[in-house]
């Protein structure tokens, strides 16, 4: 099943500022809601998002219950060298998704 959509430019000039967009499939259940019978629906959220560029961490975010389902995270970085960007989301109930994208810098 599709779990994440990532948009990284395929190529960029060295030193160029590039925009990275990520969208991940997740219900982001807050833990504050109840069923019609009054039982608490347990929390199930993504807690952290990390992006590495050729192994070096360039972006990190902590996520909280107030963030909507299917979190969309976008940020920029400087294209320094060709290589791989790796994205990892981790959260409750052992949730873990890792995806990567390649970029050619010339």
């Amino acid at each position: 099943m599709a779990s994440a959509l990532i948009n990284v430019p395929e190529r960029a000039r060295r030193g160029e500022i590039i925009e990275i967009k990520t969208l991940v499939s997740h219900p982001m259940e807050t833990g504050y809601r109840r069923t019609q019978l009054g039982a608490t629906i347990p929390r199930d959220i993504i807690r952290s998002f990390v992006c590495t560029y050729n192994g070096a961490e360039i972006f990190r975010a902590e996520l909280h219950p107030a963030i909507a389902a299917n979190p969309f995270i976008t940020f920029t970085t400087v294209a320094t060298e060709s290589g791989t960007l790796t994205f990892q989301w981790t959260g409750d109930n052992g949730f873990s998704v890792t995806q990567s994208a390649t970029i050619t810098v010339g």
Binding site: M1, A2, S3, L5, I6, N7, K21, L23, S25, A69, N70, F72, T74
Partner: peptide, 12 residues
């Protein structure tokens, strides 16, 4: 399409 969460369902 990379911001439209409906696309997650399309891919599924």
């Amino acid at each position: 399409d990379t911001a439209n969460p409906g696309m997650l369902f399309v891919l599924d």
